[in-house]
Simulated scan of single mutants.
Amino acid sequence: MTRSPIPHKGRGATINPQGRFETLRREPIDDGWGRTLRSDHPPMDGQADLSDEDVAESMEAARELPTQLFIDHARTIITRNVSPDIPFRQSINPYRGCEHGCVYCYARPAHAYLDLSPGLDFETKLFYKPDAARLLEAELRKPGYRPQWIALGANTDPWQPVERRLGITRGILEVLARFRHPVGIVTKGAVLIERDIDLLADMARDDLVMVAISVTTLDPALKRTLEPRASAPATRLRVMRKLADAGVPVMVMFSPVIPFVNDAELERVLEAAYDAGARHAAYVMLRLPHEVKELFRAWLDVHLPLKAAHVMSLVTQMRGGKDYDSAFGTRMRGEGAYADVIAQRFRTACKRLGLNAQPMPVLSTAHFRVPPGAGDQIELPL
């Protein structure tokens, strides 16, 4: 019998499918062993019988998957792209994989390049770049480098839980602050970004930073299954207020919009974010590239089985009859009647609240400077 998807404590994915580049395929089988721990036969001499509570505790422990850390021996730290429908050309990702465990994350398929699963492996087998700050400083010091703003968190979250003890993102920010280099940030890791408000406030005084905080839902119960280890919705709103009060421009990202799951919250999320100090907003429709479509369908089967068919029907309606269409220009918004309704609701809510009433802040490159390095001779005034 093929094993059915099951939730794992603190994890978003319910399955761990193989990556699309692996040459061997393995099929997990449930042989009933976990359901027959308690035998109908009396225990052998010296062997205690297992109670129902013992069995339940044993099976629960088996579902608790620890986080494993691996070093990513990167040779460069800035990634460049030419995608026509995103506003940045440079990005930095301190981590591969993300412990937040958002089941819908479009970055999950990248784990297949490591011969790992985009499922549970993506949120339990994390790769970090210990030399990130040193590599960044070396790139910024190159004579031919021309500053343009860098996106931090374009793929995986730079303020995911392991950042608390590794501090990779903090080191990157310290380098950017010393070089007065502009950065745009996207995160759900509100608790840890609060730790770094001192750096962000300093950079904001020179128009060097903008922070976009993603709020997918205001419902804590839905958050726990969709993005189990991300900050609570109320915490994200509190940190928006702290950032705004510190002079840091704040955007709310209602992302992703999931049909029949969180779409009814669009206006409430924008209202709460505006009250918390956000003055700009954006949204992105659910994207299901490669293995994510399988992961999301399995998540629906476990958590929202009665809604699953309707959710996927609406998804395919806005993707030309497919689970996903990666075409530039429409991949973020979708097409068709449902996508048009969401776009209209978003515009109406923003107009009513005053969100996006002013142009987006322009991140400045005017203050960029290369500070003296160790061993550099300091020029004396004439």
Score class of each variant (00 low, 15 high):
171 G>E: 08
195 R>Y: 08
202 D>R: 12
198 D>S: 10
208 L>A: 12
159 W>D: 12
177 A>S: 14
212 A>N: 14
178 R>G: 07
159 W>S: 11
202 D>T: 14
209 V>Y: 01
198 D>M: 07
175 V>G: 13
200 L>I: 01
177 A>Y: 08
168 I>P: 14
148 Q>R: 15
161 P>E: 00
188 K>C: 03
171 G>I: 03
160 Q>P: 09
149 W>Q: 12
166 L>P: 09
160 Q>L: 05
183 V>R: 00
172 I>N: 07
209 V>W: 00
166 L>C: 10
150 I>V: 13
162 V>I: 13
163 E>M: 07
179 F>P: 02
182 P>A: 05
194 E>Q: 14
156 T>Q: 00
164 R>F: 12
199 L>N: 04
185 I>D: 01
181 H>Q: 03
173 L>K: 06
203 M>G: 04
204 A>G: 00
194 E>W: 11
184 G>Q: 05
183 V>K: 00
173 L>A: 05
154 A>M: 14
189 G>K: 05
155 N>Y: 11
186 V>K: 04
146 R>K: 15
194 E>L: 13
169 T>N: 10
148 Q>H: 15
158 P>A: 06
153 G>I: 05
146 R>D: 14
210 M>G: 09
187 T>R: 00
191 V>E: 15
208 L>W: 09
174 E>Q: 13
170 R>A: 15
166 L>N: 09
163 E>T: 03
149 W>P: 09
166 L>A: 11
177 A>P: 04
173 L>C: 04
204 A>I: 00
182 P>H: 01
184 G>N: 05
174 E>P: 04
186 V>A: 06
207 D>T: 09
202 D>M: 12
149 W>D: 10
160 Q>E: 06
181 H>D: 02
203 M>W: 04
203 M>P: 03
172 I>T: 12
204 A>F: 03
197 I>D: 00
193 I>K: 02
155 N>M: 15
212 A>R: 12
177 A>T: 11
177 A>V: 11
153 G>P: 03
212 A>I: 12
157 D>N: 07
161 P>S: 00
200 L>H: 03
185 I>G: 01
151 A>G: 11
186 V>I: 14
149 W>Y: 14
208 L>C: 02
206 D>M: 08
176 L>Q: 11
202 D>F: 10
183 V>L: 05
175 V>F: 12
164 R>E: 15
157 D>F: 11
167 G>I: 06
176 L>E: 08
160 Q>G: 03
212 A>F: 13
194 E>V: 07
187 T>L: 02
197 I>T: 06
208 L>G: 08
154 A>H: 14
181 H>G: 04
195 R>L: 07
178 R>F: 08
165 R>T: 13
159 W>Q: 10
212 A>Q: 12
150 I>A: 04
148 Q>S: 15
171 G>L: 08
162 V>Q: 13
199 L>K: 04
196 D>K: 00
185 I>P: 02
161 P>K: 09
166 L>R: 08
193 I>C: 01
157 D>A: 08
193 I>L: 09
163 E>Q: 06
166 L>M: 08
173 L>E: 06
210 M>Y: 06
182 P>Y: 03
184 G>D: 12
147 P>L: 04
149 W>R: 07
154 A>T: 11
